[in-house]
Design a protein around this nucleic acid. Structure first.
Lengths: 199, 199
DNA sequence: CCCATGACTGAACGTTCAGTCAGTACACTG
DNA sequence: CAGTGTACTGACTGAACGTTCAGTCATGGG
């Protein structure tokens, strides 16, 4: 049967933890649940990871790697401020759709400060807001956008794309889904954010 | 010293639970923490409330009472769709500022389904989205708004105002605060949502 | 004065949790 | 085939948790 090596199991454990932490939150998940979800013993988890918290830490690193790219390219990329923000929205929403659990882990401290690793996570969120604010400020100074407060606009923009962390829950609540929900939602946010703002 | 009767203590316990549940989340709060926070014994909490969960239930009812008013008046009120949505945004944001912990308790199931009472809470959120969608649809049909998908617009609008559940955390992250943050934020959301949408 | 009642507590109970440990199975190497 | 290291498990532990309970204390009506 060749059960695959230890690296494979290590990854499987992390994936199960990702799903469970994302769905129920760190505190509500017990290590035995993770073990059962991927059909191994509790002890094996402690063979591969030192802590329950180290599992979370591994997931946070993975999540940061996925989502930080978008702000970096928005800041460093070429094109007008509006173009860069548009691609930011589209790629962020697409990532949110692919890795909803990871996004939930990232943004949880916003409504749940005080949990483990929340200090680091909030720092990361702060950097993201500042990066977005910088791009928006650039657009305002260049006369590309209406004169808004860049900080508040960035907060709202991030809040708007982070609403997608609840996408799977919301889709069960609101009956009529568009055919391509991800694209439709990204388009809607883009329009909402830019309609009428161009100078 | 007249320590006040039992009714008073009952209310104090609930207030402490509100703050702790709002800040750390239901699972992360242990009953002894609530007891310590209001200077009573753990047993007294079980004298006044049957369960840990019944504490949460009492808070959910309180939260629903605070926030459901705004959607009801938006649906039943007079004035144009836009006017009703504007007052909805303003009053919701103001309530969010006054009762941030209660709002967090209300919206937690969006990123944390599976917790206690989350089924009821999600039902309530679903109703709120539908109510908002109805008002938006009314505005679209009357030619007051651009032809958007009311469901998605409602989702985004609720997501936008619910970002205020993280207001106290965000304010520590983003340095430059406006003088009247609540008003400024409500105004910004209103402008964001309606700028250019009028027919 | 007595006792009933409501408000409250200290100390315990059973359970569940994160984390440990001794040991097994198996592949690979010499 | 002995020996070594990696992957893995069942059975366990101390601490922490939600919850209970016997009992204390103050108050107020008869």
């Amino acid at each position: 049967m060749s059960e695959g090596g230890g690296k494979d199991t290590r990854e499987r454990i992390l994936r199960c933890a990702e799903e469970l932490f994302g769905q129920r939150g760190y505190e509500a998940v017990v290590v035995a649940d993770i073990a059962q979800a991927c059909g191994v013993s509790t002890a094996l988890i402690y063979y591969h990871y030192t802590d329950k918290e180290s599992l979370l830490r591994a997931l946070v690193e993975r999540a940061s790697a996925v989502f930080d790219v978008h702000t970096r390219t928005a800041v460093e990329g070429t094109g007008s401020a509006r173009e860069r923000l548009e691609t930011f929205i589209e790629s962020w929403v697409r990532s949110a759709d692919e890795h909803e659990s990871l996004l939930r882990i990232l943004v949880r401290p916003l409504t749940d400060p005080g949990g483990p690793l929340s200090a680091e996570l909030l720092e990361g969120i702060g950097r993201t807001v500042e990066d977005l604010a910088a791009v928006i400020a650039e657009g305002v100074e260049g006369g590309e956008f209406a004169p808004v407060d860049p900080g508040m606009a960035a907060e709202c923009l991030l809040g708007l794309v982070n609403t997608r962390a609840a996408a799977s829950v919301l889709s069960k609540l609101v009956p009529g889904e568009p055919v391509e929900p991800v694209r439709a939602n990204a388009d809607f946010i883009v329009q909402l954010f830019f309609r009428g703002t161009s100078a």
